[in-house]
Simulated scan of single mutants.
Amino acid sequence: MTRTRATAIGFIAVLLWALLALFTIGSAPVPPFLLNALTFTIGGTIGLIWVTATKGWPKLRSVPLRVYIFGTVGLFGYHALYFSALRLAPPAEASLIAYLWPLFIVLFSGLLPGERIGPLHIIGALVAFVGAALIVAPGAEGFSNSIGLALAGLCALTWSGYSVLSRKLGHMPTQTVAIFCVATAILSVPAHLALETTIWPEGMIGWTSVVALGLGPVGLAFYVWDLGVKAGDIQLLGVASYAAPLLSTLVLIVVGVAEASPTLILSAALIAGGAGLAALGSAVVQRRAQR
């Protein structure tokens, strides 16, 4: 698989995550860890069917236990920290801090063997972050809960660390993500029983939203993201990930949940500009490497 194709496949995850907010709203009032258990069960089941269809079980048996622990900690840890942060701090504040993960991916990727980051990568990531902040931050009213914001920061570090370290596991089959999802679903059950009151989805919209989450943003997205970060342009994927909050807002506007504003146009320009700078930075780095 070429680097360009892997990058394009990885970006599918960003498009799917743009639907996360819409389907999460539709799944209300299901509590977070129960939603986690339901959706990751669906996402994991899809993966297990894929593993069976591709006869990938022998490959999975040869994967070291530490890899499964790493993947499970990445998926479960990210969502546990994210949900906890949004409970303890205002959502706008927590989301803004959590969305540092694409920037961290760009910065951390420079530590990987064979990867280089240039000034344009960093500038592009910062420009795109400003664009994302314009969308996420308007509801913030001062950073009021240090614990919640600290958890949001750990959330950003967890997902960026998971994504970058996945690159070092490039020889591991993407089918391992199915096991990560199943393990995450299993761990979410005791977390739900200990911390939440059971509330099931309401009506057709509720159940459809849960299934859609499991099929897309909490299912297929993790498989294509794994392919992207392992074989694609990880710096470009990191910056392009800032398109997720922008596209998510556009989706909410289309369905009538949010309203369009001049801020959205400015944000779109900044995110597109940041991604463009990162792409240019990748091209410059590649040309220098070929000399």
Rank of each mutant, 00 (worst) to 15 (best):
R3M: 11
T7M: 04
I12A: 10
A13T: 06
L16V: 12
L16I: 10
L16E: 14
W17Y: 08
L20W: 05
L22I: 05
F33D: 03
T39C: 13
T39R: 11
L48M: 14
W50D: 13
G56I: 04
G56Q: 08
L60I: 07
V67C: 05
L75Q: 07
F83N: 12
S84F: 08
A85G: 10
P90H: 10
A94R: 07
F108H: 00
S109G: 06
P113Q: 03
G114Y: 06
R116L: 10
L126P: 01
F129N: 10
V130H: 02
A132G: 13
V136Q: 14
G139P: 02
E141H: 15
L151D: 04
L154H: 09
C155M: 09
L169D: 03
T174W: 04
I179K: 06
I179M: 10
V182F: 05
I186E: 09
I186Y: 02
L187E: 07
L195H: 02
L195D: 02
T198R: 11
M204C: 00
L213C: 05
W225Q: 09
D226F: 01
G232S: 04
L236V: 14
A240G: 14
S241F: 14
S248T: 12
I253S: 10
V255N: 06
V255E: 02
A258Y: 11
T263L: 14
I265R: 07
S267W: 12
A269N: 11
A272Y: 03
L277W: 06
L277V: 04
A279V: 07
A283F: 08
Q286C: 00
R288M: 07
A289C: 00
